[in-house]
Design a protein around this nucleic acid. Structure first.
Lengths: 167, 167
DNA sequence: ATTAACTTTCATTTATTATTGAAATCTAAA
DNA sequence: TTTAGATTTCAATAATAAATGAAAGTTAAT
């Protein structure tokens, strides 16, 4: 396999993975491209490599910055902006976990909390509903608390966690 | 909040969560409905409650069965099929983790493996590419091995894992 | 073997999400 | 303060994914 072929294989695989994880294909591919690039890249270089429009590139670069997965770099005497990926995988996973907690887990927990406030209603349906949503609430909020805790201890928790659990 | 209102709030929250996790809204809502139902439900009951078509219901029930999240029940002397959700949350999370590993993680690992076979190429680009994809491969495959291990030990690993890590 | 209750399939339609590209905005340098 | 390189915005378009519904398929009971 040639380098170009391997690179495309990887960019596509990462793009596909992204779409399954609430990250659109372009966003994931820009991220992939920056991860494997030995130098930071300008918007034009990214557009050319991935054959995407300026608007699309701009919007997804911003999204990646919002997620904390890439950052801008300024070169002396150059006006244009360059972009580079966070290279530490632990850090990367931490960022993704944090963002997904914020966008998906937290709102779900809020909803589960809210529905607990339901008025007394002693039908079998209402009882099962209350029991199940409470169970889900306890479960998910405990998981989220764990996530938070691990994310905030700035060490390489992912690796550590994996190794701990592999014992 | 009335029961009906709470129920809809929950069905919508679960549907939304699903869309962020590669599970379409209807599939997630059917799952939610069955989780909170004290009895198993027929296809017609599900259609009516969620106001969705027969075709949609049929396809998503099958998908949920494929994922192992719900199962069929047959009632004596009745021709129609009834559906019930797996009630154990640990089991549910295990099923989702397993399915996502199969659909998303495994193919990514395969791609990362493949691109390692790239021919010798000593440009800075190729070297960074090789290093980064190897790093990702090691990381992700170790994570997936852990997942597999935990999923296969049929205990309530999610709870245990969380508690272990909360220490 | 035929009927009728029930389920599945899939071509078409609808809804959702992503992408484009040109105009507007921003900003460093002249 | 004007210019020009560069980025952002967003209405329009394209691509993708989900939902419909009617016809085809299944199967238990007669």
């Amino acid at each position: 396999m040639e380098f170009e072929e391997a690179k495309n294989r990887f960019l596509n695989a990462w793009g596909d993975l992204g779409t399954k994880w609430g990250i659109n294909k372009t966003m994931a591919q820009i991220h992939a491209l920056l991860m494997i690039s030995p130098t930071s890249l300008s918007m034009d270089e990214i557009m050319e490599e991935l054959e995407i429009s300026r608007g699309n590139t701009s919007m997804n670069l911003r999204a990646l910055i919002d997620w904390g997965l890439i950052y801008k770099e300024y070169k002396a005497g150059e006006r244009r902006e360059y972009f580079a990926a966070e290279q530490d995988i632990d850090q990367m996973i931490r960022k993704v976990a944090l963002e997904r907690s914020k966008r998906e887990i937290k709102p779900t927990i809020k909803a589960l909390e809210d529905v607990q406030q339901m008025q007394k209603d002693n039908t079998a349906e209402a009882r099962q509903f209350k029991a199940k949503t409470k169970q889900l609430y306890d479960y998910i909020s405990q998981g989220d608390r764990m996530l938070e805790k691990l994310v905030n201890q700035k060490e390489n928790w992912v690796t550590k966690t994996i190794l701990k659990l592999m014992r």
